[in-house]
């Protein structure tokens, strides 16, 4: 019996090595292919955006980025309006969403009764699953009228002539414009940031947190001086994830931003973003320069996103070097 088993084991172990090696090779190959495919796709997108946008880049040069004329009749395009609109709405959305996302995450990890943790956590994740067109429709049909009635009109009537508030609140009181779009964007990026922050805070070792409490720290102190510094680098990643989504968000913004290509002059003024401009005009753009200008806009958005990610990396590196 034992005579029979011994060679069998020896045989299986001898065979196992090459088989494992083969699986390993295949696995390596698959992973390598996956990574290179991604890189190739990225490169391909940049190249095709460059080629597609070239007629516009060639025709308008640097002025494409600095002028705010967008005239499909005369075929003259300048993207300053949409670029500024994209940056302003994303920044505002981030400023609005970050404190709330932080609050949600801290509440769920530190304060929330265990019973509520699941339902609230699931609700946050569900919010992330709502398609952006639904946010757009809701924004236009539900949010905009309420916003106009209860926020925009009171602010506009309260503004003293010539005051800063008057400059900020100029516009048509119908609930669409830069600020309403930013608020919708904030609601959209909130779940991503809240969910990521929550995961991060949960990853703080229980011992670290318990010892802080053991030293007599309050919840606020634990959050501020223990858990938050512990997840600092990851938190920047969460913020960038939200910002990336805000920069590229298309449908919801299109519905509520007012879609004007001019430079936004106030918080309630109509504006446009790069993504909303492309979504609005690409299907009916018949002149080659118009199409090229829209593709060049895509390239600009790509570069902005790239710059944001680069900046995040840089911040992380500086932080790591400091600590």
């Amino acid at each position: 019996m034992s005579d029979a088993t011994l060679p069998a084991t020896a045989l299986s172990s001898r065979r196992a090595a090459p088989r494992g090696a083969l699986i390993g090779k295949v696995f390596e190959g698959l992973c390598f292919t996956a990574a290179t495919t991604l890189l190739a796709a990225l490169g391909g997108i940049i190249v095709s955006l460059l080629i597609g946008g070239w007629p516009a880049i060639h025709k308008f040069g640097f002025g494409f980025l600095t002028t705010a004329t967008w005239n499909p009749v005369t075929d003259v395009y300048g993207a300053a309006g949409p670029i500024v609109g994209t940056l302003v709405t994303s920044a505002l959305a981030l400023a609005l969403a970050l404190p709330v996302a932080g609050g949600v995450a801290f509440f769920l990890t530190e304060l929330c009764p265990a019973r509520l943790r699941m339902p609230i956590g699931t609700a946050v994740e569900l919010l992330a699953g709502i398609p952006s067109i639904v946010y757009g429709m809701w924004g236009l049909f539900v949010f905009a009228p309420l916003f106009a009635k209860y926020i925009q009109l009171p602010l506009m009537t309260a503004a003293a002539p010539g005051s800063l508030l008057e400059t900020l609140t100029m516009g048509i009181p119908n609930g669409s414009g830069i600020l309403p779009a930013s608020i919708i964007l904030a609601i959209m990026i909130l779940p991503f940031m809240a969910a990521t922050l929550r995961e991060l805070l949960m990853s703080v070792p229980i011992g670290v947190r318990e010892s802080a409490y053991g030293l007599g720290a309050t919840t606020a102190e634990v959050v501020m001086s223990v858990t938050l510094p512990y997840v600092r680098t990851g938190a920047i990643g969460a913020v960038m994830l939200g910002l990336g989504r805000a920069l590229g968000e298309t449908m919801a913004v299109t519905f509520i931003i007012g879609n004007s290509h001019s430079f936004p002059k106030s918080l309630f003024d109509s504006g446009s973003t790069i993504a909303s401009t492309i979504a609005n005009e690409f299907t009916e753009a018949t002149s080659p320069v118009h199409t090229a200008a829209l593709i060049a806009l895509g390239l600009v958005l790509f570069l902005i996103t790239f710059a944001v990610l680069g900046l995040a990396r840089l911040m992380l590196r500086v932080q790591e070097a400091r600590s």
Binding site: T69, W70, N71, P72, V73, L140, F141, A144, P145, A148, I172, P173, N174, G175, S176, T254, F255, G258, N259, S260, H261, S270, N280, E281, E284, A285, T286
Partner: peptide, 26 residues
């Protein structure tokens, strides 16, 4: 005249329903 023009004034709604909603709400 074109499919899209540089509008001197006003707000843009997406599609017929977007225009209709803006008109109804203002």
């Amino acid at each position: 005249a074109n499919d899209a023009v540089q509008w001197p004034v006003g707000v843009g709604g997406k599609g017929n329903d977007g225009v209709a909603a803006q008109v109804k709400q203002t």
